[in-house]
Amino acid sequence: MKTLIYILLISLSYSCWAQKPLKVGRYELDGKTFVVKKFNNGVRTRLSIFVGTEVEPQNKSYPPPKNKYASPPVKRDIHFDTALVKEIVLKTLGKKRARFKEKKAFLSLSLTFKKDGKLEDAFYALYNDFNVTLEEIADIDKKLKAGAIKATFTGIEYLDYQFIHYNGFDVFF
């Protein structure tokens, strides 16, 4: 009986350690690099998570537009299933939703699409509460890039770009 209790305690401790909130640093998981940074703009602090296969995903560069004076695509011309993105985030962080809501936390996503609409990159910034784990972010990232999130574009600006950026898609809890 004593042994069983020890085993249970050790298992509980391990699972608690594995689910510990993200801290600033660099992590590797499933072949991806996660760079976590914390910023304070004097008013509030946020936790930014850059994900990619590059060594420094936060410094990834994208090809310049075909026309040097090209206007960048605006948000209203980038269309994707926003409800599905929200659903993926909320389901993955479902157990923490009440806490996040109480603390007015929100997750801001920056999405980069290829010209064919496929999601190339997703970066994350968590505001007001940072109780999120590496696994949760990796899970969101994996689900977003599974293929269901695909963008279409209107207007003419996107024609000059190989990658189209949609910054600041905020998911509130």
Binding site: Q58, K60, Y62, S110, F123, A125
Partner: peptide, 9 residues
């Protein structure tokens, strides 16, 4: 738009 993810952030 033509900056790095960190600059955008």
């Amino acid at each position: 738009t033509n900056g790095t993810p960190s600059q955008k952030d």
